[in-house]
Amino acid sequence: MNGEEKKFHDKIIYMAQLASISFIWIFVAGIAVWILNLISISVDLNDAPGASIGISIIAIPVFFTLAGILTYVFVGFHKKNNNIKE
């Protein structure tokens, strides 16, 4: 692999990694939207909205923390890399 090719290769890989990270966020956001939708249904039907809200208070932050950790690791890895190159 020559320099040009390697650069291209790295770029593609980087884009793919970015895509996978954003996929995690889409997934987490999707779960949040789903749970919020269920809460709105339970409020509409007056069907134990308290229970639904209680569950969501625990569940949604858990998912966001997980996505946050992944992003933290990804960003943390790449930050230092750039510094070395400079």
């Binding site: 890989i13 990694q17 923390t65 943390g76 890895f77 790449h78 070395i84």
Partner: peptide, 27 residues
């Protein structure tokens, strides 16, 4: 290459990874 997330084994990376693992194992 895709899965390794640019790991080079630098001190900073090790710190980041360890911190993330520590948070995760408690969670």
């Amino acid at each position: 290459d895709f899965l390794s997330w640019g790991w080079q084994g630098t001190e900073h990376q090790k710190k980041v990874l360890n911190r993330a693992i520590n948070i995760l194992m408690v969670m």
